[in-house]
């Protein structure tokens, strides 16, 4: 069960770091076509996330992919994101108030997918906490994804 093991990993991350929502894009981003979709979701409030498909470069995944860096937002209130919230549909439909979005790299330094972990309330992410989350994601989720990509190829 390939899918379920990624989902199980996501579910663990969600529980361990008490996020409300953890979503992951398709993990074959490089090969997938122009539109980027969320493929895995744990803790979503409805089915809307399944319909969302953003052109490359748009929304949260677009921003993360373009910069190659994590986005860490403690509170979207007062940010540029809030003003343009409808351009970040996942934040709007899931009513997230704080989130971390990070790129997942493969060994060739290409982005395989974007992981978004968020809460529906404000949340201060301390530096160490972020490092812990990042470390955990790399140890568990990234390994799991690489394993699945290998099996499928």
């Amino acid at each position: 069960m390939n899918e379920s093991s990624i989902e199980a990993t996501l579910s663990n991350i969600r529980e361990q770091f008490s996020f409300d929502l953890v979503v992951l894009t398709d993990i074959r981003i490089r090969q997938t076509n122009y539109m980027i979709r969320w493929k895995y979701s744990i803790g979503s409030s409805g089915e809307q996330w399944k319909r969302i498909a953003l052109p490359r470069g748009k929304g949260v995944p677009g921003t993360v992919m373009k910069t190659g860096k994590s986005m860490i937002i403690d509170d979207i209130a007062g940010t540029d994101i809030e003003r343009d919230l409808f351009r970040y549909p996942i934040l709007k439909t899931e009513q997230l108030q704080s989130f971390i979005a990070m790129p997942l790299w493969n060994d060739d330094e290409e982005v395989m997918g974007i992981l978004l972990m968020g809460n529906r309330s404000r949340r201060m992410f301390a530096e160490e906490e972020y490092e812990m989350i990042k470390h955990c994601v790399e140890k568990t989720l990234r390994k799991q994804i690489l394993k699945e990509l290998m099996v499928n190829e």
Partner: peptide, 8 residues
């Protein structure tokens, strides 16, 4: 619209 906002 559906893809952009998740609204059908």
């Amino acid at each position: 619209i559906e893809r952009q906002y998740g609204i059908s």
